[in-house]
């Protein structure tokens, strides 16, 4: 890798870090300022909505299988249903994911046979 490529790599690394860091610092200062001004340090409403919708969008993008065929979609559907079923019983995180992956894997492996 030549010097210009290293420079590009360092720029991207610093830029990505600043994209994650600066908005956090800005909001922290903004909350502290609001708290001293009116005693309430609440976040803008649009931001509190965007947080959960971003996670829902990540769920949507990760849901699309690598091979977009009927079997992959069936395995995805079964995996999510099993995850949901276990989650409704346990209200936990680890077990629903484990059972979901196992169900997804079983449909992926067994049905083609």
């Amino acid at each position: 890798m030549d010097m210009s490529m290293w420079l590009a790599l360092v720029s991207i690394a610093i830029g990505t870090y600043l994209i994650r860091l600066l908005p956090y610092i800005w909001m922290k200062r903004s909350l502290a300022k609001r708290q001293t001004e009116d005693g309430i340090g609440s976040m803008p409403t649009w931001l509190t909505i965007l947080g959960p919708t971003m996670i829902a969008a990540m769920f949507g993008t990760s849901l699309v299988p690598t091979h977009s065929d009927a079997l992959s979609w069936l395995a995805t559907g079964v995996g999510i249903l099993v995850t949901f079923g276990v989650w409704t019983r346990t209200r936990s995180m680890g077990l629903p994911i484990l059972f979901g992956v196992v169900a997804f894997g079983m449909v992926t492996l067994i049905l083609p046979i």
Binding site: P52, I55, A56, M58, F59, S62, L63, T66, H67, A75, T76, G79, I80, T83, F84, W87, M93, P96, I97, G100, V101, F104, G105, T108, L109
Partner: peptide
């Protein structure tokens, strides 16, 4: 199959979070 099956942990994780 590792690269086909294990990544399903991500949608399952996002699902239980949301």
């Amino acid at each position: 199959l590792i690269s086909d099956i294990l990544p399903f942990a991500l949608p399952a994780l996002f699902f239980v979070l949301i």
